[in-house]
Amino acid sequence: MRFPAPLVTLIRELGRLPGIGPKSAQRLAFHLFNRPTSDVEALAQALLDAKHGLDRCPVCFHVKSKDAPLCAVCEDPRRDAALVCVVEQPADVLAIERSGAYQGRYHVLHGVLSPMHGVGPDELTLDALWARLDGIEEVVLATSTTVEGEATAMYLARSLHEHGVRTSRIAYGLPVGGDLEYADEVTLGQAIAHRRPF
């Protein structure tokens, strides 16, 4: 049986979203079909508003409202301007903000170095990072602890040392509340290697 053309289009468009396969797209499409028109219109409007109303901050490349000149973090005068935390994606900024433990500013790379995916230093927002180094005392490298994140952090650390800027790397270790017995070998090894006086 053939679906009507609008439903096929909706399934195809939903299926193009990351993490959504054909079956999930079909489920979502039928879910939307069964919702009241006002709900679907609100969703469509929210999508359009997000697309048209959001932009990247020209300083740190975090998400900002198109009406504002800078993102909320860069605009906040209480933030420590001498401390910059480098992260891979805007979602990482939100994760660190939720921790409540950081009061500096950010720089979002929008990716990690990955030659096999065609991502080199030129594809990241590194030129903007070099341009804002004046007045920065320390850069915290908070890329993921994957091989790609580690390689990006090492590359950044070397380049930043050449610029005469102090760097630090987020600590490795055991997750809070976890049992030692269930920790993986690499995490446990790093936790022991980077132990601190107590």
Binding site: P115, M116, V147, E150, A151, M154, Y155, D184, E185, V186
Partner: peptide, 23 residues
């Protein structure tokens, strides 16, 4: 199960060549 983690592959001098071999 991890048989061998190769932390040295993240070094900038080794990383591009690891990608080359893998790709």
């Amino acid at each position: 199960q991890l048989n061998g983690a190769l932390a040295g592959l993240a070094r900038p001098e080794a990383y591009p060549y690891a990608h080359l071999l893998a790709e």
